[in-house]
Nucleic acid binder design. Structure first.
Lengths: 245, 245
DNA sequence: ATATCATTTGTACTTTTGTACAAATGATAT
DNA sequence: ATATCATTTGTACAAAAGTACAAATGATAT
């Protein structure tokens, strides 16, 4: 092994494989999977359609590779932030930190290219909307652990809310997050220019604030007829048994 | 007179145009626009592909026709409910009624077939995610008025919150609504069976509750026009970069 | 019944799609 | 240089797409 040859190898070519991955991610996250052709991707990457087949046998495999690229780093980042958030003493601050730990990596994963986190999250949003069969499995497999960790952390901060309600509200958070990344211009339009929906900083702050408030809302709790009763909610709802499917 | 035979014939082939519309709506709202072929639609409707071309010149036109079907009734329903909500005296109740007026028609429009409202809303969610050019215009044209009316009504109930922030939170509501209709099974999965994400009644109640709470959250507070500061101490983590007011 | 109209059917045409594959190209090691 | 390997290119092909259109069918009015 010669060092120089290794260095040369790095600078040797602009790495077409990466260019294709990047172009595919951009196109998929903008137009969905079915609306983008292999030829579109090749052209955007400055490559030949045959090169796409060479590096990633099929279009499905290309999509999967994009997911493999992003899932682990994003979840790692979330786990780090969540661990830090759990150590926050003040309960209110802790809840906000937990939510932020969930939201922040979705907008910008540190390791990747500029805007990589937001782009990948938008991709997930679109794939989830399209009901893409290829990604549904990997999404559930990769992100459910993270989601459970997040939900449990919130539940620890708000033990009086049944876990199922926290699930609902976390679900709403993810939906809001997705929609903001998919249609930011709607915010700009409806606010008549007072807000920029594409401003990630603003979006994060607004999302965190709104989500913390929604999480803190009293439980729905249909079992109790009187709203002024401050009795603890029924424990049976938050059972820890796992239901077989 | 051959009324009898005519009736029998009609009962056998009850308006193919409607059947095609229904099949198309179902398929589009399940798999998106690009993943569904004209042949898929024809087969689901028990029709010949040529019949689709006959009734709706193109695939785009078919999609547009679906929108024309639903937009007006749904917005009418929303306007009715909103007008009624505005007359509620109690401020807290009024806010909840307003949110409910926005959410309810999205789950079930009264005039249509069973589940028609939810199906059409899911369709809008997917089209919005796919960035469908055909529907983008009609969506903005048809729903922006309703959205503005809703936002203004909320703003009247919460005058101390800047309108732009209400826009953000309404946007989150719509995102949460969309996502719940698109991926209800995720709620069931993460709640380990304690909740059924596909239960429209539960979804509505959870969504209304969470949204009311998020709307009532104190303003994020950049250069705010309202000098009132009786809210709990706000976090200064949020870096306020710009004030375009 | 016959004529007239609306609808349905069958088929075919033109593009576009994903993917395969042989040849061309370029780099590295010997 | 020559051989070996990885990559890129060009092309082709079978399948699937949207849509057009003539013929067949069915219903209604006269």
């Amino acid at each position: 092994m010669v060092k120089k040859s290794a260095e040369k190898e790095k600078a040797r070519k602009p790495n077409m494989r990466e260019a294709i991955l990047f172009a595919a991610e951009e196109l998929f996250s903008a137009k969905g999977f079915n609306a983008v052709t292999v030829r579109d991707i090749a052209q955007a990457a400055g490559a030949n359609p045959g090169s796409v087949t060479y590096h990633f046998k099929t279009k499905d495999e290309l999509l999967l590779e994009i997911y493999r690229r992003h899932c682990k780093p994003m979840n790692l980042r979330r786990a780090e932030l969540l661990a830090a958030a759990k150590r926050v003493r003040d309960l209110q601050d802790r809840l906000e930190a937990i939510v932020r730990a969930y939201v922040l990596p979705a907008f910008s994963s540190g390791s990747d290219l500029a805007g990589g986190g937001a782009r990948f999250t938008r991709l997930r949003a679109i794939m989830s909307a399209e009901g893409n069969e290829v990604t549904r499995r990997i999404i559930a497999q990769t992100f459910d652990d993270t989601s459970h960790a997040f939900i449990d952390a919130v539940h620890d901060s708000l033990p009086h809310i049944p876990r199922a309600e926290i699930v609902w509200r976390s679900h709403f958070l993810l939906g809001a997050l997705y929609y903001t990344l998919v249609t930011p211009e709607r915010v700009s339009r409806l606010s008549r220019g007072d807000s920029d929906g594409a401003d990630a900083g603003d979006a994060i702050e607004q999302l965190v604030k709104a989500t913390v408030a929604s999480l803190q809302a009293p439980a729905l709790d249909r079992a109790t007829p009187s709203p002024r009763r401050s009795a603890p909610p029924t424990k049976s709802l938050a059972g820890d048994g796992h239901a077989p499917k």
